[in-house]
């Protein structure tokens, strides 16, 4: 918000901007969105999220309860459904003042955050089972019927990459390139070398996991914010891409460079930004602050594991969940209003 140079009363903006969520199976899409209400509630900024229909509202209600009260992770998405929320925020945006002078205004923006609440498999390039056709034409979002149609209509995209899954399975590109190429075909065919216009917030998830955290800690990626009451370690956005590449470097399976290079090639460089995120954050004990000796917030569950093998140990304090959306909001708003 430091770029706000001139505070102005919020101005309504009736245009609907879409932000889509894109990620491989088990990349944490459901948990990311479930944590979003908690993240906005914890944020000191002017943020609100609410469903635009009953299903979407119930999704937030149910999963917020799961995370915060029951300390459980949302189950992975198993049924196709259409979930949409409006994320209201105030963003700085360029505007024309009197005599046509440029100025920066603070405007109230509403973004339509949409979840193809489908298994991430729908993003696969080809079906895992050759006998099963790719279900690219079943979606009915905004009049579109395919994932690429859906993403093509988005102004911003949250791309979730699970670094642990990428290290172990190396399938991020598999879930990425098919959709990307189809999206490019749809939006770029016949153009003269343009790039895709969407803003991409690449969220490297599961920062709270021991391996990811320790990699960041041991390789000099961590920084702290003076304003964070929990004094959580974070990875600066400018380092996010390098962090992801470094993290996956030793893996025999991962070829995450294909993803990052494709992002470079198909999108405008200033429209791609990396965020190292955690939907649940680190465990905070009675000290009220991050404790490097006691930060694990995910614990194996015992007894009835139909609700999941893992549970959440303490409070859910998301890291970099709101920030990608804020960045997308600011960027989209700035792009729309730019002359």
């Amino acid at each position: 918000m430091s770029e706000l140079t001139e505070a102005q009363p919020p101005e309504p903006d009736t245009g609907v901007r879409r932000i889509g969520v894109w990620g491989a199976t088990q990349s944490g899409k459901s948990t990311f969105l479930s944590a979003l209400y908690i993240a906005t509630a914890r944020s000191p900024r002017d943020l609100r999220i609410y469903g635009i229909n009953t299903d979407s509202t119930e999704f937030l209600v149910r999963n917020t309860h799961l995370l915060n009260a029951q300390r459980l992770f949302p189950q992975g998405t198993v049924l196709d459904s259409r979930l949409s929320w409006d994320l209201a925020m105030t963003t700085p945006a360029p505007a024309r003042g009197l005599l046509g002078r440029r100025k920066t205004a603070t405007v109230s923006q509403v973004f339509r955050l949409e979840l193809n609440d489908t298994p991430g498999l729908d993003f696969a390039a080809v079906p895992a089972d050759p006998a099963t056709p790719v279900r690219r034409n079943r979606l009915d979002i905004g009049g579109s019927t395919s994932v690429e149609d859906y993403l093509a209509q988005c102004d911003g995209i949250v791309l979730l990459i699970d670094p642990l899954r990428e290290r172990d399975l190396g399938d991020a590109h598999e879930y990425f390139h098919g959709t990307l190429l189809r999206l490019a075909q749809r939006n770029l065919a016949g153009t003269s070398g343009r790039r895709l216009g969407q803003y991409i917030a690449v969220c490297v998830t599961k920062y709270d996991e021991q391996f990811v955290y320790e990699f960041a800690r041991d390789n000099g990626y961590q920084m702290y914010s003076d304003t964070d009451p929990y004094v959580f370690p974070r990875v600066h956005g400018d380092d996010g891409k390098r962090f992801l590449l470094d993290l996956c470097k030793g893996s025999e399976r991962s070829d995450v460079t294909l993803v990052t290079n494709a992002l470079d090639h198909f999108f405008e460089p200033d429209r791609v930004r990396f965020f190292v995120t955690s939907s649940i954050g680190f465990y905070v004990n009675e000290s009220g602050q991050f404790d490097e000796d006691d930060y694990n917030n995910v614990v194996p569950r015992t007894g009835d594991i139909t609700l999941g093998k893992y549970g959440i140990r303490g409070q859910v304090i998301p890291i970099n969940v709101v920030e990608p959306l804020e960045w997308l909001g600011r960027s989209v708003a700035a792009g729309r209003l730019a002359p």
Binding site: Q210, E292, D293, Y295, N296
Partner: peptide
């Protein structure tokens, strides 16, 4: 462990 060891949480 006295300190978190791997993903094993420490003694409270």
């Amino acid at each position: 462990p006295r300190r978190q060891q791997g993903s094993t949480i420490r003694c409270p």
